[in-house]
Design a protein around this nucleic acid. Sequence first.
DNA 1: TTTT
DNA 2: TTTT
Lengths: 139, 139, 139, 139
Amino acid sequence: MSGINKVILVGHLGKDPEIRHLEGGVAVASFPLATSETFNKDGRKVEQTEWHNIVMWRGLADVAAKYLQKGKLVYIEGKLRTRSFEDKEGIKKYTTEVVAENFTMLGRKTDFETEGAPRNGARTAETDGYRNDADDLPF
Amino acid sequence: MSGINKVILVGHLGKDPEIRHLEGGVAVASFPLATSETFNKDGRKVEQTEWHNIVMWRGLADVAAKYLQKGKLVYIEGKLRTRSFEDKEGIKKYTTEVVAENFTMLGRKTDFETEGAPRNGARTAETDGYRNDADDLPF
Amino acid sequence: MSGINKVILVGHLGKDPEIRHLEGGVAVASFPLATSETFNKDGRKVEQTEWHNIVMWRGLADVAAKYLQKGKLVYIEGKLRTRSFEDKEGIKKYTTEVVAENFTMLGRKTDFETEGAPRNGARTAETDGYRNDADDLPF
Amino acid sequence: MSGINKVILVGHLGKDPEIRHLEGGVAVASFPLATSETFNKDGRKVEQTEWHNIVMWRGLADVAAKYLQKGKLVYIEGKLRTRSFEDKEGIKKYTTEVVAENFTMLGRKTDFETEGAPRNGARTAETDGYRNDADDLPF
DNA sequence: TTTT
DNA sequence: TTTT
């Protein structure tokens, strides 16, 4: 039976998205996202930051490349996926990623403006609330 | 600023929960959870299963120990947490876990009955929809 | 700026879906869904049931018509939408509905078999985890 | 069996929270929240705003009274609840509300500063990521 | 490596 | 009635 595998994050990009193109031309964007939590410990405020590896495919990767940047606040919805790989020493390791299915930019209007984009009315419908229509992801 | 780090899963336990008690008596339960996704690939049905490491603390661990079992269908809400550890060879590795904040059992009523529990009206409010009231988790 | 409007429900259908076709042929399915919550009140178990009006459009409505039935357990993801209408006395009233964006059937395999469907391997990828690809909904 | 009834919203307050105290002293805060969605219709950008009635109880209401204000951007998690009431003409009507279980403020640091609060370091752990510990709500 |  |  089918199950549910859903992740909801609101956080800041730790770096600009890194874009790769697979053989066949499929675009893949990836970047780290920080979600911080503040709580009281013995009367002192403590901040705990969790880092997530975000991966975006195809059309979503293109939009990410265009609008997401280090420091931006973003809402991301996706699913968990753990895959194995071999490091340089040939040791098998595992990594868990959040494969994004859609994202929405949060924050001030100026936050949506990028270097390469016009400063007036640059934001399109696709920038906020972009939904991946490619559910035929290769995994 | 604070962010959001939320995971929502519906899946089946791959094993009975494993219960440990830390020095101080704090209970920790852990078990693998499978979420399956079925999709069409070239006209054939393909099932993809993702495995998640679930961790429950304190009161939630106690309830898990009492009611959760291999094969049960459960809804879990929690957050992502990646931690490092050294394997037996002393190699540093990372693992990502879902730290559960509450869970709800899904499925038939008979699914809530366990070996050790009475067969009549055994299910209490705590079994379905248990919420962790210990937000002072040690991480 | 764009926001987030998301609803996640797991519950049982109170009735079979009711299917209508708008002028233009667009299919709309609607049905009530019950989500129950059990809690302790003064030592006694009390069950509280909340009823939700679910609406599905286009392809999702077709799948609902085919597979969803009174009593089935289903996971639904969607968004809130409040609209006004006039009752028979001409009094303006409001109703809040959950416009589903995708759903997944939960429960036993036999629960996925319907009257009109073959009893062997009838379940297709579309039955569980159907995602609405029509984001151009008329509202 | 227990179900899931969960709402996740990110939006702006349409008004300051309105605080009432029930007999017994229980605090209740309520306010409208707007979630906007932008999409393309025939090449033109169209914005659709949905309004939600948010209700917060007890400790959560107190925190809301202290920190939430008209215009603020906030993440809210809660559940749906439909209740009936009689309007001034004695006509029975229904209203659906989102009973918040926790909220997190989003946006710039200056957005967390209120009239009555000191401008330096005013924000405490409670302002972002407040979780309602009173699950014994009166409904 | 983000943000407050 | 919010925000962009």
